[in-house]
Design a binder for these strands. Structure first.
Lengths: 151, 151
DNA sequence: TATTGTTATACTCTATAACTATA
DNA sequence: TATAGTTATAGAGTATAACAATA
């Protein structure tokens, strides 16, 4: 009566036919895998997302960064605090609005981004190991369409 | 300087080429969408997972259910408490181990499962709306292989 | 009046450790 | 000595409300 069914822990066959469950479950696995890797750089996934968007957007305000990432402004404060404490980001005066900060990526921040990208590549390789190159592109394309439609 | 780029909130183009990010992000969206729907039945996603596994496994112990779902035993206590308070599950004596409970699904529990499945179907339809039937099967097959390999 | 960033607070979810009663 | 369930507790993550400075 106490035997456990086969398969990976936390993934029961009774739920395997729900695509929503599979997406949710694999999202959890992917997040956890990557979080463990970039932890070696002293980064959380929130900090990682902020760094990437900052590099792409240039010097934007905290508010704009919140909108990009979908993070609460009060949570952004501590995220930027951590990034600034590690010397990856600087809060500089905004040129035209004295209430706001212009968030600048430091050279150290760019180097950390570069290192993190190698870790991300490794994590993705591990996650998608069961799939061929063609299948990985298929999966990416399907997920991308879902993501772009989910606004 | 404060303009926000186009696209769904929380999904920035700087991250769109990471398949791991897309999986993680869509997992979050899927979980949230479904959680909102089954909330109308007074259920959380944890309770929903427990109900499904209980139906498939019959009367198992809390410990076995923890192993199936990947949940901590201490978290399982409150989950079963809630299910029992709603009359969906019963803790009965284990036939051969006086330490353990045999978890039984009630008729009410089975009816709730049936109602929840309709909600799940609707949520999945909404989530996968951008994809054709063929593409949905493709996506499901790819995710299933990842899930089965993730143990 | 509205907005930017900040602080304080609360709430959820999850994990850890210690305890009991049994095995 | 180990296991099933429970309790208490602490931590991460996130959301809410109020506030000061500025627009």
């Amino acid at each position: 009566m106490s035997e456990t069914p086969p398969g990976p822990p936390g993934i029961h066959r009774a739920l395997l036919h729900h695509t929503g469950f599979l997406i949710s479950r694999m999202g959890f696995v992917a997040q956890k895998q990557f979080a463990e890797r970039i932890d070696s750089l002293g980064l959380s996934t929130r900090m990682w997302g902020a760094l990437n968007v900052l590099e792409a957007e240039g010097a934007i305000t905290q508010h704009a960064l919140c909108t990009c990432i979908g993070m609460d402004p009060s949570s952004m404060v501590s995220t930027i605090d951590e990034l600034e404490a590690k010397g990856l980001v600087q809060r500089r005066p905004h040129p035209s609005d004295r209430r706001a900060h212009a968030l600048h990526l430091t050279d150290n921040g760019r180097q950390t981004l570069s290192r993190g990208r190698k870790l991300a590549k490794g994590a993705q390789e591990e996650l998608l190991a069961p799939l061929s190159a063609e299948e990985r592109e298929q999966l990416h394309g399907l997920l991308l369409r879902l993501a772009l439609a989910s606004g």
